[in-house]
């Protein structure tokens, strides 16, 4: 146990120092590129993927609605905040619009949980996908609130301590802090009575119900927690992209979140970040590996290979390798 904590702290320090360590191995401009476009982006994607991994690991729910929930946070921010183009509602600063966005995502998470509360496994997968695509098509066709196909631009983010939010170093550390806090929060939550009931539901919902717990309410609450996590990712990605458009919550984006979670492994929340890092690296270097325009084929093949060979993802491959090495005398 103490060993794990020590290693986690070491890892955290390493991640914190990473942007300053990169220039030693890479030219300065590439180091900045890695900080913002690969590491920062991987952290943001990872947070959204972690909301799915949280549900899958501890509740056994595979929800395809997480990207849509993240998008709700992003759209709420873009609709409310001053300076967004076009002006939809406005009147709020970032200090108020960001919490409201997180609230909206949490509520949407609760709603998804409530709608799908009586379904399991592949039925849950189908229903959450249908919900996500329904919201996507609604947003894409609605001009009055979401500016339809174009989306909402110019969500530049707040200024912190005189620093621009989108400065690569600032953004990286904010994304890292958010990810670490949420990650630690999940690890704490699953040790609380709520988390234990959730894992009980995963293993045997009838027995949990027989013990007197409300399976439905715990499920809905878990989706609410996942909604909050996804919302944090949605806010960060909206500021990273300086706005949000329907494409960012479409079928492709929805499936990408699933791809990241599965590539990393659904057995532990850390898999979300492993998966998102692999995904982002492939996304960035697809041009040199195969063909820039054929990134989808590349990531599809990687995804298919992982599902066929190692359903528990990169974590599973790691665990198997470790077992293999340990067996050797």
């Amino acid at each position: 146990m103490r060993n794990t904590i020590l290693w986690s702290l070491l890892g955290l320090v390493a991640l914190l120092m990473l942007p300053w360590a990169l220039p030693f191995v890479l030219p300065a401009n590439e180091a900045a590129f890695w900080t913002a476009n690969i590491l920062g982006r991987a952290l943001v994607f990872g947070i959204i993927a972690m909301s799915l991994t949280f549900l899958a690991t501890y509740g056994g729910f595979i929800s395809l609605a997480q990207m849509m929930v993240a998008g709700i946070a992003g759209y709420t921010l873009a609709i409310l905040v001053d300076g967004a183009v076009p002006h939809i509602l406005g009147g709020f600063g970032y200090g108020a619009a960001i919490p409201l966005g997180l609230l909206a995502a949490t509520l949407m998470g609760l709603l998804v949980g409530a709608i799908s509360v009586r379904t399991r496994d592949i039925y849950l997968l189908m229903i959450t996908l249908a919900l996500a695509m329904g919201v996507f098509r609604f947003i894409e066709t609605n001009i009055a609130w979401f500016n339809g196909y174009e989306g909402i631009r110019n969500v530049v983010g707040p200024t912190l301590f005189g620093q621009d939010f989108r400065n690569p170093l600032v953004f990286y550390h904010i994304a890292l802090a958010t990810a670490v806090l949420l990650y630690a929060g999940i690890l704490y939550l699953v040790r609380t009575p709520f988390g234990l009931v959730l894992q009980g539901i995963r293993d045997n919902p009838r027995r949990v119900a027989a013990l007197g717990y409300s399976v439905g309410l715990h499920r809905i609450a878990a989706f609410g927690v996942a909604g909050f996590i996804a919302g944090c990712g949605g806010i960060l990605s909206t500021i990273y992209n300086i706005g949000i458009s329907p494409g960012s919550i479409g079928l492709g984006a929805t499936v990408n979140v699933l791809i990241m979670s599965v590539i990393g492994g659904l057995g532990h929340p850390v898999g979300a970040f492993i998966g998102s890092l692999i995904y982002t690296v492939f996304d960035t270097f697809a041009a040199t590996i195969y063909d820039r325009d054929r990134f989808n084929t590349l990531i599809g093949v990687v995804f298919l290979a992982i599902v066929l060979v190692s359903p528990d993802g990169a974590i599973g491959i790691g665990a198997r390798l470790r077992r293999l090495l340990a067996r050797r005398p």
């Binding site: 592949i122 997968l125 499936v255 699933l258 791809i259 599965v262 989808n296 084929t297 990531i299 599809g300 093949v301 995804f303 298919l304 599902v307 066929l308 359903p311």
Partner: peptide, 10 residues
């Protein structure tokens, strides 16, 4: 379901 998702992307 995951296999068919991968397939549909490709």
């Amino acid at each position: 379901a995951l296999v068919t998702i991968g397939l549909s992307i490709i």
